[in-house]
Amino acid sequence: MDAPSAVSISESTAFRGTIVALGGGGFSVSETGESAIDDELVRMAARRIRGGAEDEAGAQSGFGASVGLPNVCFVPTASGDSRDYIERFEATFEARARTHVLSLFGQSPWDYQDPAMLLDMDLIYVGGGSTANLLSLWRRHGVDQRMREAAAGGTILAGISAGANCWFAASSTDSFGPLAPLNDGLGFLRGSACPHFHGEPGRKESFREWIAQGRLPGPGIAIDDHAAVVYVDGAATSVMVESAGAQAFVVDTGGRLHNLDEQGPVASVSQDG
């Protein structure tokens, strides 16, 4: 890795709210459905409904059972509303949250719902799949605007892979087959994103090259599987990791790589290995 240097991650003046971008991992790939990052997301949602206050019973349960369960909505657009994916989400979260699904395909038994439902959620969790398809359908149905409104109201936005890419101005995606730049993101977060940074062949090399060539805007955020970057009001504030060796990085406009933890604290929500 190149020698570190100061990298600015400027705060966006347009977006307000909390976004958690997962490079990979979570319940999507866990054989048991267990994920320390997902656990922390539920805790964040539970703290939201308590107004940020920790009470003794909530601290003991870990999920704020004393004041009710958080409303968590899964948005599986990128996978074409995969039934298996939705059922996996429900099995993972139903014991610790009130689960909801926003199905733009009208997938039975969830059926189509007005995206305005997102405004009533404590946590919105966007699944992986095709970033390009997600962006197209969200814009057609007005989901992008509802996401922005929900975040401004305090709802936590989170997502994995395509569900992480979508928040940025641009990203590295395999939506069209081979990895390619996509300069068509929502722009809630500036710069570009690359999930699965060390987990899939070609991700690291292509992302750094595209930013250096100006084909993707910098700075870039590169996130390993089992790592997540937390953003507050457009600025990266911390990194969560649930597996030994998982990291997140900044790629500057010259294509140079820097540990993101040089910019803020790393929270090891669980450490194995």
Results as ranks from 00 to 15, higher is better:
Val67His: 12
Phe74Pro: 03
Met121Thr: 07
Pro76Asp: 15
Met117Glu: 13
Pro115Thr: 05
Ser79Trp: 02
Tyr125Cys: 08
Ser108Asn: 08
Arg83Phe: 06
Ala59Phe: 12
Ile156Lys: 03
Asp55Thr: 13
Gly142Asp: 01
Leu118Asn: 11
Gly154Ala: 09
Gly159Val: 02
Thr99Val: 13
Phe74Asp: 08
Gly153Asn: 11
Val101Met: 06
Val101Cys: 09
Arg146Cys: 11
Gly129Pro: 01
Gly154Glu: 06
Pro115Lys: 15
Arg88Asp: 15
Leu123Ile: 01
Ala59Val: 14
Ala46Trp: 04
Ser103Val: 01
Leu123Phe: 04
Ala152Cys: 03
Ser161Asp: 07
Ala116Gly: 13
Arg96Lys: 08
Gly153His: 06
Arg50Thr: 14
Ile156Phe: 05
Gly142Ile: 11
Tyr112Gln: 04
His141Gln: 14
Gly106Ile: 00
Asp111Leu: 07
Arg47Glu: 07
Ala53Glu: 14
Gly106Asp: 13
Pro70Met: 12
Ala158Leu: 03
Gly51Pro: 06
Leu137Trp: 09
Arg148Glu: 07
Leu157Tyr: 01
Phe89Pro: 09
Leu119Ser: 14
Gly154His: 12
His141Glu: 13
Ala46Gln: 06
Ile124Tyr: 00
Asn133Tyr: 05
Gln113Trp: 02
Glu54Pro: 10
Ser66Val: 14
Glu90Gly: 04
Ile86Asn: 14
Leu102Asn: 15
Arg98Thr: 02
Gly80Lys: 03
Leu119Asp: 06
Ser82Arg: 02
Asp81Thr: 00
Ile156Arg: 05
Thr99Gly: 06
Gln60Ser: 11
Ser136Leu: 11
Asp111Gly: 06
Arg83Gly: 01
Thr92Gly: 04
Arg43Cys: 03
Leu118Pro: 07
Arg146Val: 07
Phe89Met: 04
Asp114Cys: 12
Gly153Asp: 04
Asp122Met: 08
Gln113Pro: 01
Gly153Ala: 09
Gly127Arg: 02
Arg47Ala: 08
Thr131Ser: 10
Arg83Met: 10
Gly127Phe: 00
Gln107Lys: 15
Ser66Arg: 04
Thr92Ser: 14
Ser82Leu: 08
Gly62Glu: 11
Ser108Leu: 10
Pro109Asn: 09
Ala150Trp: 00
Glu90Trp: 00
Ser136Ile: 10
Ala116Cys: 11
Ile86Ser: 10
Gly163Ile: 03
Gly52Trp: 04
Leu119Lys: 15
Gln107Arg: 14
Met117Trp: 02
Thr77Val: 07
Gln113Asp: 15
Arg146Glu: 13
Ala57Ser: 08
Asn133Met: 05
Arg139Glu: 05
Val67Ser: 05
Ala95Thr: 13
Leu134Tyr: 11
Ala78Leu: 05
Val72Thr: 04
Gly51Glu: 10
Met117Pro: 02
Glu149Leu: 08
Leu102Ala: 09
Leu137His: 11
Ile86Pro: 00
Leu123Asp: 05
Ser103Ala: 15
Val101Leu: 05
Ala65Cys: 10
Gly159Ile: 01
Gln60Tyr: 06
Glu90Ala: 02
Leu104Gln: 11
Pro76Cys: 13
Gly64Ile: 05
Ala116Ser: 14
Met147Arg: 08
Ala46Lys: 07
Leu157Ile: 02
Leu69Gln: 14
Pro70Ser: 11
Trp138Asn: 10
